[in-house]
């Protein structure tokens, strides 16, 4: 069983973000980490690998710095590490095409990813890749297992939890689960250090990035919040009460 896990490196959720010239200043990000939803996809992939004697291929598409995340994935048990350069990538369909090309190259049977990245929160990778691969796609899953030729997964439904089973090549997009994530051990770190990362470009993968159907027309920052009103001293109590009652409608 070849298990592909799609990973994205994002600014750590605890890192301070500085916006400069309307964009996140990447140089100011002190720490980059694996997107938290992807961590659950990776954990589930590792469990599936252990249970089915599979091969886990960790794939990322991003700048050079994202290789560090692949080494982190190897430290917990990823077997093959693939880094796709994001040079020339203009929109998320490009990313999906590149990821799908690698998935095909490795004949992956099952593809796991996070439901969305913690930075852009786009949520298009899983469904987009599934579309290109003509694969089944189940989103918001919390666990996946492989029994009798089928993938069985749990996801939230309108009135609780539903159990879904699919077969054939399938894509699963993970939400945060209750599964405890494994921590890297020393042996894993030693092995990861020695593990080679295979780098690929769009040319290597035969993906044409020259045209894009998507154009960014404009970008507007959220409107600034109006300043609050400040009252000091007991004499203002009637005014405050009146404002809370008539303007804010909270009492």
């Amino acid at each position: 069983m070849n298990i592909a896990v799609l990973l994205k490196q994002v600014p750590d959720t605890t890192a301070k973000i500085i916006i400069s010239e309307g964009k996140v200043d990447e140089n100011s990000v002190s720490k980059w980490s694996m997107s938290p939803y992807d961590e659950y996809a990776l954990e589930s992939g590792l469990q599936m690998k252990d249970a089915n004697n599979g091969l886990l291929i960790a794939i990322t598409c991003g700048p050079d710095r994202s290789k560090k995340m692949l080494t982190d994935a190897a430290a917990v048990g990823a077997d093959t590490l693939i880094h796709i350069s994001d040079e020339g990538v203009k929109d998320s369909t490009h990313t999906q095409q590149l990821l799908a090309a690698v998935i095909k190259k490795f004949d992956a049977n099952v593809i796991l990813c996070g439901k969305q990245a913690a930075d852009t929160n786009g949520g298009s990778t899983g469904p987009g890749v599934a579309e290109i691969l003509d694969a089944a796609c189940v989103t918001l899953v919390s666990e996946v297992s492989f029994t009798d030729g089928k993938y069985i997964t749990m996801r939230p439904s309108n009135n609780g939890t539903e159990k879904v089973s699919v077969d054939g090549i399938s894509v699963f997009a993970f939400d945060k689960g209750t599964t405890e994530l494994r921590r890297p051990n020393v042996r894993g770190i030693m092995m990861a250090k020695k593990k080679a990362i295979e780098s690929m470009t769009s040319t290597d993968l035969g993906v044409d990035l020259s045209s894009s159907n998507v154009t960014l027309d404009s970008q507007t920052p959220p409107p600034e919040k109006a300043a609050g009103q400040k009252f000091d001293g007991a004499e203002h109590v009637p005014t405050v009460v009146s404002k809370l009652r008539n303007e804010a409608n909270v009492i």
């Binding site: 982190d72 921590r183 020393v186 770190i189």
Partner: peptide, 18 residues
């Protein structure tokens, strides 16, 4: 010879987390 900055950082982070 194989002990580099990245490896030191992984060990340090791994042990801190453990």
């Amino acid at each position: 010879s194989e002990f580099d900055k990245e490896f030191l950082s992984m060990l340090t982070e791994g042990w801190a987390e453990h």
